[in-house]
Design a protein around this nucleic acid. Structure first.
Lengths: 182, 182
DNA sequence: TATTGTTATACTCTATAACTATA
DNA sequence: TATAGTTATAGAGTATAACAATA
């Protein structure tokens, strides 16, 4: 229970969306999009902070470290390049996280048979035990986090967010390939 | 256009939610909550990354620095303690961001009349000009990000996220005061 | 030559805690 | 004594780029 957290303590008496609208009154802004986007960002931060504080902190795991354990738990041993991509971090970042997890004896490195440039990683017995215990706990917090919504609302929320994320990633990819082909 | 970005390039061929469900088949997890929460987090990250890359990078502004400019633009000169709270960062973090923004001549420090411990900050003319130009651009990207949804869906998304964030912040605050009073 | 992963450097943002100045 | 802001230290995560080993 020693881990430094990733955000200050939550606070409440923030100036509300309606104050912002009042200040920008009459200006030609897309207030609907503004609300949707700012709430996406705020909720994302709040969820990550909550999980870090409530679940990960006492196991001394960073968010990315937890993600790596989770990936290995779900799909088994993976090459590091693939793990980095799944976790959404660069290979350089993953190298650092791997060092930490190896030092904690939660993952182990596996040499590749044919191509000795490649490295795979897998859970150790200790890592397996930890994530098997941790993930159900994580999921129970997910239940708490969403319990303010009805099941139908939870599904609808996931559906709307999937659309946004997918269109965003698609457009980034296409602009990236445009950039690369210029 | 020199700023280092906060995440690796987007990728697409990620293992999907249905693969995860298949792997966890038969286990007593709350898949509905799992989907809702993971999509909140993913969308939040995707939105912030998009804004950093598409809008903020070429102005050499970090997300927090932009937030500070925005706060001052909407509400005018503010004491630093208040700005830190609104921006969701600690006062120590804000001190660093303020240094950068003062060095860029985008904000200026204002001494307090009566209590000389206090410091307020405000936009400079240059800062005012920048945020007046930048925010409409930012908002136009918010429109793009949400254009995959109908107006009604955008409103519904904001509503559902507000509920989640609010209940999360509420519960953190109450657990914090419980902790403090023990 | 191209590719995989490591290492080095630098930056942002995070926390906690000590410190200064002021009240 | 208490408070506002600064500074110091440490750590996570980010990028880019140089690098070694291997293909």
């Amino acid at each position: 229970m020693s881990r430094r957290l990733s955000s200050p303590a939550p606070h409440d008496n923030l100036l509300a969306e309606r104050d912002i609208r009042a200040r920008l009154e009459g200006r030609p802004f897309d207030f609907r999009a503004m609300s949707a986007v700012s709430n996406i960002y705020r909720a994302g931060t709040a969820v990550r902070n909550h999980m870090e504080r409530s679940v990960l902190a006492e196991y001394d795991l960073s968010w990315v470290a937890f993600t790596v354990l989770w990936i290995l738990w779900i799909w088994g041993a993976q090459e590091t390049g693939h793990v980095a991509e799944e976790a959404g971090v660069t290979k350089g970042t993953l190298t650092g996280v791997m060092k930490t997890l190896v030092a904690m004896n939660l993952i182990k490195r596996l040499p590749h048979k044919d191509d000795r440039r490649r490295v795979s990683i897998d859970l150790t017995a200790k890592g397996e035990k930890l994530i098997s215990k941790l993930f159900p706990l994580f999921n129970s917090h997910e239940t708490v986090v969403t319990s303010i919504l009805t099941p139908a609302e939870q599904d609808e929320l996931a559906r709307l967010l999937r659309k946004v994320t997918h269109s965003l990633v698609e457009s980034e990819i296409s602009s990236e390939s445009t950039r690369n082909s210029l």
